[in-house]
């Protein structure tokens, strides 16, 4: 089998991180479980947010998990792609808005 830094089977082994440090893993997974429960936002809405964040972080495990989860929860392909565009727009915007910082610096030193 080809050796990759990222293996899709590793997603299913996420829980194993507790083998090296159980108390912290338990705290994390409890927190994670609590975060995704329906409260002020529904589980479904949270899934779409997770999908967008997963793309912004470009985490292949999270993209795998939340593409399936968001689709299973009933989002359409178009809605999911729009969520990815939101992530892209924020990421692109975050780069571009720093252009102001660049302009500030250049204006400071330019004659």
């Amino acid at each position: 089998m080809a050796n990759h830094y990222y293996n899709s089977e590793d997603l299913g082994k996420f829980g194993n991180i507790g083998e090296y440090q159980k108390p912290l893993a338990d705290k994390f997974f409890d927190y994670y479980g609590e975060v995704f429960k329906t409260s002020a936002l529904t589980e479904k809405e949270k899934s779409l947010i997770a999908l967008a964040v997963a793309h912004a972080l470009q985490c292949p495990y999270c993209i795998d998990a939340y593409s399936a989860d968001a689709y299973e929860k009933g989002y359409s392909k178009q809605q999911m792609m729009e969520a990815v565009h939101v992530a892209a727009a924020i990421k692109g915007g975050a780069v571009l808005v720093h252009g102001v910082q660049m302009m500030n610096k250049v204006n400071e030193i330019a004659m």
Binding site: T38, T42, E43, K44, A68, Y71, E72, K73, G74
Partner: peptide
């Protein structure tokens, strides 16, 4: 598709 149903009540 190849997935399980989400929560019936939601």
């Amino acid at each position: 598709g190849a997935f399980l149903p989400p929560s019936q009540s939601a």
